[in-house]
Design a protein around this nucleic acid. Structure first.
Lengths: 290, 290
DNA sequence: ACAAAGGTGTTACATATTTTTCAATATTTT
DNA sequence: AAAATATTGAAAAATATGTAACACCTTTGT
């Protein structure tokens, strides 16, 4: 590296606030696949970032270079140094932290969990579950427990936009028996139950099962007792080097399910989403996204 | 990437015997600090290898490229691909599903998001944020928006066990101004704001800031406007091939923070956790974990 | 609502870079 | 050893690239 140990990536990030809209857009494009994109011709970079050519020229000057060639020169120097440096065997995620840092250790564990979990999932099951969740002729109930209700609600919030006839039940609430009154045969329950498994959730699942509802279960690798009642279950690995379990893998499955269901019901969803957009615009809850 | 998986470096070494004296000299110069030297101007490379300019042009054509620019283009593509694969290359995640299956595509994107995000995080910032969150002399407020309140609550549920003096505020609720009455200088706000950024969250952050509270922000790569007020911010990449954004990366950061804070306050947490266990056992809410 | 300032993009120009041409030198073959 | 062939480098031509000046648009403050 050159005189100072600051990489160009660092400098861009540090200055990110002093940059204008187009320049920020460009900055993200440079960081997107760093440093490769900065090593091409200026015009290619500009096109890639969808900004004009002079914007690129101006920004590199703002970063303290006399011009684009000098900017590229330093990028190449950086690259040389990185390749040469034996430490730069970046098998570490947070590159600036030692590999023993929790950021790296937990990320390792989480990736490992994802790999294990996905490796054991049968895509047929997954697709079948998504088909069920996309079926608007059935009412969809989403059930979570003490901790897992956050996952349940995350799923609920998205599904709410995608389809009608949907209810979020918290198994720890006293009110859940009331919800079961209306359950009809063929309705769907998406149940979350991770250790420590909750009695309420099990009872709720039993009653739903008795009423002829289909059960889709998200659980952990040891499987909640609800598993015996479930039509389809997904078990995620959730252990990380922490006193707590990780919800990352189940969340990934959820997001994939949301995306899949969305694709299955695109015709209807589109209208629903546009309607929602309008409502948000009217309530001025949100800032315009620029 | 090109059709064949051969890198330029491989191709050069394979052809090394068919090259002439000057070309071999040049080849070694390219391989010397690969790929940086090949990414500069042709003339610089020629001078560096002490060969003439046309020699470079000729050899590049011998390698099968139409010209020097095309050669550089492929070098950059190679670099992009290399940077992208720190772990687990082409093995698909859900092995039983084709690589185009959403399970695999979304997982790829999520892993990529994690890598990008972690790579840009300064561990000093992260540790500083954890230190703040572990400081029980300050009250800790956790603030989420319409969707992000699920993340906020996830954090809250865990922190609640780890430390006292903690409050979860939903910025979309009408009640939030009341919470601010009790805020004292030095109190901590952990704020979640992802696109679309919410006006309420911004206002809440402004008021908290005005009261002298410390702000820790979890946002996306484009950064919520709250960023300007925040003492520490973490920007996660959240884009996935879906109509929705991914919360996986921020969740990973959260879990790491929980674990870190837990370690920092272990002496106290231990007692709190045991007390909690007792309470759970008494209420019989949970099944024994076997 | 208007004016001023700052930001952005289009065009044109100067410069740098690559390619081609051609002559000189080295290498191989007979 | 001489001729033929292949290799190399210098210089010129062609192309691509970066920079500067100008004009339009958007935003900000009065």
């Amino acid at each position: 590296m050159s005189d100072d140990t600051l990489t160009i990536s660092d400098r861009i990030q540090a200055q990110l606030d002093d940059l204008t809209r187009a320049e920020r857009q460009l900055a993200h494009s440079i960081l997107e696949n760093y440093p490769a994109s900065g090593l091409g011709p200026l015009s290619a970079l500009a096109k890639d970032a969808q900004v004009s050519v002079p914007t690129v020229a101006r920004m590199v000057q703002k970063l303290g270079f006399s011009g684009y060639p000098e900017f590229q020169l330093e990028l190449r120097e950086e690259l040389k140094a990185k390749v040469k440096n034996p430490i730069a065997k970046h098998d570490t995620w947070a590159e600036r932290a030692p590999s023993e840092h929790l950021l790296n250790r937990l990320t390792d564990a989480v990736i490992d969990n994802i790999r294990h979990t996905l490796g054991q999932i049968d895509p047929k099951d997954f697709d079948a579950a998504c088909d069920l969740a996309a079926d608007t002729s059935r009412h969809l109930y989403i059930v979570g427990g003490r901790v897992t209700h956050t996952l349940a609600e995350y799923l609920f919030l998205h599904m709410q936009v995608i389809r009608p006839k949907i209810t979020h039940i918290q198994s720890t609430s006293n009110a859940w028996p009331h919800y079961l009154l209306d359950v009809k045969e063929g309705d769907i329950f998406i149940v979350f139950d991770m250790r420590r498994y909750e009695n309420n959730t099990l009872k709720l699942a039993e009653m739903a099962h008795a009423k002829g509802a289909k059960l889709i279960l998200f659980t952990d690798q040891w499987r909640s007792p609800v598993h015996h009642l479930a039509d389809i279950s997904f078990s995620s690995r959730i252990v990380i080097p922490s006193a707590w379990d990780s919800a990352v893998t189940p969340l990934l499955l959820l997001e994939t399910m949301v995306s899949t269901v969305q694709n299955l019901t695109w015709g209807d969803t589109k209208d629903r989403m546009e309607a929602l957009e309008d409502m948000f615009d009217q309530t001025k809850l949100f800032r315009k996204f620029t």
